[in-house]
């Protein structure tokens, strides 16, 4: 207990040396739409920065100049229709500028027609089940062994010594690069949410309802995510791993799976 408290206090320096990763921003992801999402995010962000500079700028000037200790006498104005029309109209214009490209992206996000393949993803407390609709492949995907042991209270295992602590699974989802993959979500018990930040997909898996989303990965690699909707005690322990591989490697993976079954 005491050791842990000290560790907590030292956590900053410890963490800094162990694995310095000061990720500040949303990743751009590996699909066209994740990049569009990132760009929308940055566009609104910069609008906020611009508005902030103006509003906070005026406020700070006022705080510095219009203080009683500097002998400032208060003015008597308390109304200006012109000013109020201006600062109602400008935000409306900015909102229109934001909403047009946003709406365009939303239309694309919803267009899951003509997929190359479909995967049914079912949430369970607390693991994911994947079924490839065009083949017999189906499997559960749970938290990897290494994390299962380390996650326990007083496990004695330093999380920094575990590779991809809490973000690794036993059976990752494998998809081919360049294919339009449609994902169908549902749940066996409570509501879960399937989220992979690099794909910019977060969709609730809800019992009795089938939701859909789609992506077309432009790059190969391993992309990690977690359940994003509180689903009970092990909500923090049902990660998602998506491996994007070249189409040939994907075909080989499918064959090896068929051979196993």
């Amino acid at each position: 207990m005491i050791r842990n408290t000290i560790l907590s206090l030292l956590g900053l320096s410890l963490a800094g040396t162990a694995k310095a990763d000061w990720a500040l921003n949303m990743p751009k992801g590996i699909t066209d739409l994740s990049l569009e999402t990132y760009n929308l995010h940055m566009m609104v962000f910069w609008w906020c920065v611009a508005i902030g500079i103006v509003v906070f700028g005026v406020m700070i000037i006022s705080l510095i100049k219009h203080r009683k200790s500097k002998g400032a006498e208060s003015a008597t104005f308390s109304h200006s229709t012109t000013a109020e029309i201006i600062w109602t109209a400008i935000p409306v214009i900015i909102l229109i500028l934001i909403s047009v490209p946003t709406a365009e992206t939303m239309v694309k996000l919803e267009d899951s027609r003509n997929p190359d393949m479909s995967i049914v993803i079912t949430g369970y407390q607390w693991k994911w089940h994947y079924k490839y609709q065009d083949s017999d492949i189906e499997f559960f995907s749970s938290l990897a062994r290494s994390s299962v042991e380390a996650r326990r209270k007083e496990s004695g295992v330093d999380p920094f010594s575990v590779e991809n602590y809490l973000l690794d699974v036993d059976n990752p989802v494998v998809v081919p690069r360049g294919a339009k993959v449609r994902l169908l979500f549902t749940s066996n018990d409570v509501i879960h949410s399937w989220w992979v930040v690099g794909l910019a997909i977060k969709k609730d898996a809800i019992p009795g309802i089938v939701n859909e989303a789609w992506f077309r990965a432009n790059e190969t690699g391993t992309y990690r995510g977690q359940c994003a909707e509180l689903c009970g005690k092990d909500h923090g322990y049902m990660p998602i791993v998506v491996e994007v591989v070249e189409p040939e490697a994907y075909a080989a993976w499918v064959n090896s799976h068929d051979a196993e079954q």
Binding site: L12, A15, A18, D21, A23, L24, P27, N164, Q226, G236
Partner: peptide
């Protein structure tokens, strides 16, 4: 933004710095 969900009791090590702060 980096990918940490809310309402989780434990998290992956890349989130540790900001959590400590």
């Amino acid at each position: 933004l980096a990918g940490m969900p809310r309402r989780i009791p434990d998290y992956s090590t890349q989130f540790s710095d900001f959590n400590t702060i």
